[in-house]
Simulated assay, not measured.
Amino acid sequence: MATAKSAAKTAKKKSPVGRANTRRWITRAVVALIAGVSIGAGAGVATVSRLEPGRGTGVDSLAVMLDSIAKGRIPKSSAAERTAERQRVADSVKNAAPVEVADELIAIPSLADLEEGAARNALIDAGLQVGEVQFQLSPKAAGTVLSTIPAAGAKVAPETPVTLVLSDGRTGTDTLSRPSPTHAP
């Protein structure tokens, strides 16, 4: 009995192998953390130097940004710089050539009662795209076009997707229900 208790006490103590394993995993975690931070910082510097090529090296820009954050302020542009930027944008909008949209609009063709394949071809030939296909209860043959969204005749920009609403070929009557039996008097 004494040997069983001493064996249990020995089992409860951590073995040196367990401690070595723990140390090994902690060391690996620290190395992975340092590698991750280094790779992240390098990628950040590369990104800054690529996005801001005129501001010297990426390290300089990063140092200025980090210094500003550490001081608790982000450099702001002056009121004169903001006004000049707004005026530049307003001038570019004012001087932009007007877009002639009315000449480029396409009328959606009437596709009612066409089969799906013929309707798709007609849309593509008209310079439009086939959008989604929806099905609706209808006694017409399955795959027959019932309508389009936007509706036929509407004018849209080229390459606009048009939704086809097709018949599913069902009449809408429930085939599982039976008429109630009539009771003879």
Rank of each mutant, 00 (worst) to 15 (best):
L62G: 01
A63G: 05
A63Y: 06
V64G: 01
V64K: 14
M65R: 12
M65W: 13
M65N: 08
L66N: 07
L66H: 02
D67M: 07
D67L: 13
S68A: 15
I69W: 09
I69D: 06
K71Q: 14
G72H: 08
G72I: 14
G72Q: 11
I74N: 09
I74G: 02
I74S: 12
P75H: 08
P75I: 10
K76Y: 08
S78C: 07
S78A: 10
S78V: 05
A79K: 12
A79V: 09
A79P: 02
A79Y: 08
A79W: 09
E81S: 13
A84M: 11
E85P: 00
E85A: 15
E85L: 14
E85S: 14
R88H: 08
R88L: 13
V89C: 00
V89R: 14
A90P: 00
D91C: 01
D91V: 10
S92R: 13
S92T: 09
S92W: 02
V93Y: 13
V93T: 07
K94C: 00
N95A: 15
N95W: 00
N95I: 01
N95M: 09
A96D: 12
V99A: 14
A102L: 12
D103R: 09
I106D: 01
I106C: 03
I106R: 04
A107M: 06
S110R: 08
S110C: 06
S110F: 07
A112D: 06
A112G: 03
D113H: 04
L114V: 02
E116V: 11
A118K: 13
A118W: 02
N121K: 15
A122C: 05
A122E: 13
L123T: 06
L123V: 05
L123S: 04
A126M: 07
L128N: 04
L128P: 02
L128F: 12
L128D: 05
Q129T: 09
G131D: 06
G131W: 04
E132T: 10
V133L: 08
V133A: 01
Q134H: 07
Q134P: 00
Q134R: 15
Q134L: 15
Q134T: 11
F135A: 04
F135I: 00
F135D: 03
F135M: 09
F135W: 07
Q136L: 05
Q136S: 11
L137C: 06
S138I: 04
K140W: 00
K140L: 13
A141M: 03
A141G: 01
A142L: 00
G143V: 02
T144P: 03
V145T: 00
I149A: 06
P150I: 05
A151E: 14
A152W: 02
A154M: 10
A154S: 14
K155M: 09
K155F: 07
V156H: 01
V156D: 03
P158F: 08
P158R: 08
T160D: 08
T160W: 04
P161A: 10
P161L: 10
T163P: 03
T163L: 05
T163R: 11
T163F: 04
L164T: 02
L164M: 05
L164H: 02
V165S: 02
S167C: 07
S167Q: 07
S167V: 04
